[in-house]
């Protein structure tokens, strides 16, 4: 089946089976490697992208269900001022260890700040608990989100 997808503001036509998860269309058909495969079952958040601004797990989102809605991936999130702020905060705090989960973390965090510009710790817990970081960089992820949200952050160390 041919599907025309709107990804990071550009239109792409792909010819794949209707059940193919968006994740594999992005990664293997369109060569956008930013969304990661972690579990394939909606359990880890490594594959998080936005569809019309909502964070979704692309590993369990069939391509046939995407339609004409706007897909944003980590490769395009810098166009979103909140996404850019979060990427900068991630670098300022030196969040990553292996880094594999971090594209998904940033996508979830962007959706969080879009809804809740000044998240409390509880807000962060609620929105970010779907994203696993095996390296457990959670302290720094929390700090980076607060930094991006404009909170004064205690200097690390």
């Amino acid at each position: 089946m041919a599907y025309t997808l709107n990804i990071n503001g550009a239109s792409h036509t792909v010819d794949v089976d209707e059940a193919t998860p968006l994740l594999w269309v992005l990664r293997d058909t369109l060569d956008l490697k930013g969304a990661k495969y972690g579990c394939g079952a909606g359990l880890c958040g490594a594959c998080t992208v936005h569809i019309d601004g909502t964070a979704v797990r692309s590993c369990v989102t069939p391509v046939s269900g995407v339609g004409t809605r706007a897909v944003t991936t980590i490769e395009g999130i810098a166009e979103n001022p909140l996404g850019k702020k979060l990427q900068d905060a991630w670098l300022a705090i030196d969040v990553a260890q292996c880094g594999y989960c971090q594209p998904g973390q940033i996508m979830s965090a962007t959706a969080l700040l879009a809804k809740t510009p000044k998240p409390t710790d509880a807000d962060i817990d609620a929105q970010m608990s779907g994203n696993i970081c095996r390296c457990a960089t959670y302290n720094r992820i929390r700090t980076a989100i607060k930094l991006a949200a404009g909170d004064a952050v205690k200097k690390e160390g």
């Binding site: 930013g34 991936t73 980590i74 670098l91």
Partner: peptide, 22 residues
């Protein structure tokens, strides 16, 4: 304190990992 040299590539989702090889 020195930042991870791959940090920018990580936060922009650049291909870095084995699973990203083509």
């Amino acid at each position: 304190p020195t930042k991870d040299v791959d940090g920018p590539a990580v936060v922009h989702g650049k291909p870095l990992y084995g699973i990203d090889v083509t």
